[in-house]
């Protein structure tokens, strides 16, 4: 591998439809600086441009330039469109393309891998810049195992999990936006976005990136108010089991599990959660696991650091009161 000065790194800038940056972008930019010269990539359509606040953040975290790839009338959220747009920016000096490891961006990574022949890995938790290649740690089996891998190709495409690095600002200069018009293939254009409804952002931390996650299951019987209160006291996010989302007690995007959000916070508190295997697959890499359940045989107690056999309606309010008292 060439030295960082000669290596280019492309970082896909995730943003809401209104142009607000997703928080993990700052981490990806910080990580990119350890590999080479960072270029932000902002995929957009119909002439939309990044807002000034976004350019300030991206520039501040080390990307002097943001390439604004305008797909014109083609919907810029479709993952094949994003992948083709990104592939057009990859050049001989590009050493890495970094994206967040969301379900959508894993598809971007996969397609970019096909288009460029790059070694591609997702669910990456750490990247080490070796003398001649990148060494990457990734989670497997729902984070019960970690494997260390090397990328054998000159270009690496990496889907990175939250908290792989701590975000660090480096500059006060906003990034400069350079717009390119992008043509995509007929196959990518063939998919039509008939409807798209983006959910309003919450005041709470993003579930996948939160350091404290409070989760409710069947035992809540649909009442999440105590869990909301506990999450607010702890500065955490609220998640749920599939039962709770299927019952419509909480939005589907709160579902933690192998097919929902995977979380690995410092502290996981499950209240009225039994710990079915699919749920455990989405949370068992958490730092400390606390479980509250009336059923002493609930499987979640097999992995809990602190298990409490009891009714969440008794335990949680007392815990909230005591936490408030201890903090004064």
């Amino acid at each position: 591998m060439t030295t960082p000065a000669e290596a280019d790194v492309l970082v896909l800038i995730d943003h809401a439809d209104d142009g607000t940056l997703r928080p993990q972008v700052r981490e990806l930019l910080t990580l990119g600086r350890a590999i080479g010269t960072v270029h932000g990539v902002w995929v957009t359509g119909a002439g939309a441009t990044p807002p000034p606040a976004a350019l300030e953040e991206v520039g501040g975290h080390g990307a002097p330039v943001v390439h604004v790839l305008d797909t014109g009338s083609v919907h810029p959220r479709l993952t094949p469109v994003v992948a083709e747009a990104l592939a057009g920016l990859v050049g001989p000096a590009t050493r890495a393309v970094l994206v967040s490891s969301s379900f959508e961006n894993k598809e971007v990574a996969a397609r970019l891998g096909v288009l460029t022949g790059a070694g591609t890995m997702v669910d990456v938790t750490a990247v080490e810049v070796g003398p001649d290649r990148l060494v990457v740690d990734k989670q497997v089996f729902a984070a019960t195992w970690t494997s260390r891998c090397t990328v054998r190709t000159p270009l690496a495409v990496l889907g990175v999990k939250p908290h792989a690095v701590e975000a660090e600002a480096t500059s006060a200069d906003p990034a400069v936006a350079v717009t390119h018009e992008v043509e995509v293939s007929a196959t990518a254009r063939a998919v039509e976005v008939v409807e798209r409804t983006e959910r309003a952002p919450s005041d709470r931390p993003d579930l996948g990136a939160a350091q404290v996650v409070v989760v409710g299951g069947r035992g809540t019987e649909g009442d999440f108010s105590l869990l909301d209160e506990l999450a607010d006291v702890l500065g955490g996010a609220v998640g749920a089991t599939r039962v709770a989302t299927d019952e419509g007690w909480i939005d589907k995007d709160a579902q933690i599990g192998q097919t929902g959000v995977t979380v690995a916070p410092r502290l996981y508190i499950g209240a009225g959660v039994s710990g079915a295997v699919h749920h455990r697959g989405g949370m068992q890499a958490s730092g400390t696991i606390v479980a509250i359940n009336t059923d002493a045989d609930a499987p979640i107690f097999e992995i809990a650091d602190l298990g409490i056999v009891g009714d969440l309606r008794e335990v949680v309010p007392r815990a909230i009161a005591e936490l408030r008292r201890l903090r004064g």
């Binding site: 891998g113 790059a118 494997s147 891998c149 054998r152 890499a285 009714d311 007392r318």
Partner: peptide
């Protein structure tokens, strides 16, 4: 295109505690 160098299982959890609520579990939590 990638090569696995090593793999490790997450170490098992130690010092696990299971208590039954007798009115004090909230405070103990």
């Amino acid at each position: 295109r990638t090569q696995v160098l090593s793999a490790a299982e997450r170490p098992p959890r130690t010092d696990r505690v299971l208590i039954t609520d007798e009115g004090d579990a909230g405070v103990r939590l």
